[in-house]
């Protein structure tokens, strides 16, 4: 009975959840009927526009550009973050500078501030967008890798040193594999945050991408495209998470658990 009760609870919960989604869409549709498309477009037209964003060659270019910038920025911030974390391990004073100055400042500085400065420094370009993104992501990457290095098993590293004096071999065979879980954590966090700020970064400092598309749509009072851009972001984020991040995380876990 308890199993059945749990099952019916599960069914009821899904009914309630899906019911809420349907109710929200219905309410949206009903309200959009009495409001102008400039204020609240109908769900059907937004869905169609979202679809266009991926299919229409002129529009899908923006989605692709945004996605590539996110991927690139995540990659760069992971590499630079690892480098900074390794550098900080070299000496106490570098560690202090990285931890107490660079991290504190980067963590506190807002993305819009970077966006405006990037526009002034680099003009409107992909460089400027990725600069903003990397600046925001860097503290998360560095913190994760520093944590990983702090938890590095000193005994295993010592064991490696007993076999070889080649630092590069120790790094490749021991340090890097032990850092993998932290790298995956850094990847996951950076990816989520990068999508959150992707639009802000593209708002001022770009000539293409979904952020620009949204800004132009807003200026043209095209609420349909504004909403479609938002949903496109939700879709792109979820797709990347399910198709790239989760498989990588699983592969890493499987790797580690091999005998």
């Amino acid at each position: 009975m308890t199993a059945r009760a749990r099952r019916s609870g599960w069914l009821g919960q899904h009914a309630a959840a899906e019911g809420l989604v349907m109710l929200a869409v219905l309410g949206w549709w009903w309200m959009s009927n009495s409001l102008s498309a400039m204020v609240l477009p109908s769900p059907v037209s937004v869905l169609k526009r979202t679809f266009d964003l991926f299919v229409d060659p002129e529009l899908s270019r923006h989605a692709l550009v945004t996605f590539l910038r996110v991927a690139g920025s995540v990659f760069i911030s992971l590499v630079v973050g690892l480098a900074l974390a390794l550098l900080a391990r070299r000496a106490q004073w570098i560690d202090a500078i990285v931890r107490d100055r660079i991290l504190v400042a980067l963590n506190a500085l807002p993305s819009v501030g970077w966006a405006i400065l990037a526009l002034i420094w680099f003009k409107a370009s992909t460089l400027s967008v990725m600069f903003v993104q990397v600046m925001i992501l860097l503290p998360f990457a560095v913190t994760n890798f520093m944590e990983g290095l702090r938890n590095l098993d000193a005994e295993v590293v010592e064991m490696a040193h007993s076999f070889t004096r080649r630092r590069r071999a120790v790094f490749a065979k021991i340090t890097l594999p032990m850092m993998l879980p932290y790298g995956v954590a850094a990847l996951r966090t950076s990816y989520g945050i990068c999508w959150k700020i992707a639009l802000v970064a593209e708002l001022f400092g770009a000539q293409s991408g979904l952020g620009q598309l949204m800004l132009r749509a807003q200026a043209a009072a095209d609420a349909t495209t504004v909403l479609a851009t938002c949903f496109a972001i939700v879709v792109l984020f979820a797709a990347g998470q399910k198709l790239v991040i989760d498989p990588i995380a699983r592969a890493m876990r499987a790797d580690l658990h091999q005998p």
């Binding site: 639009l199 949204m214 504004v226 972001i233 984020f237």
Partner: peptide
């Protein structure tokens, strides 16, 4: 996962 800017843009309209 809904982008923050999106809310701001919509709020400006509304």
């Amino acid at each position: 996962s809904f982008p923050g800017i999106g809310w701001t843009m919509l709020a400006i309209v509304w």
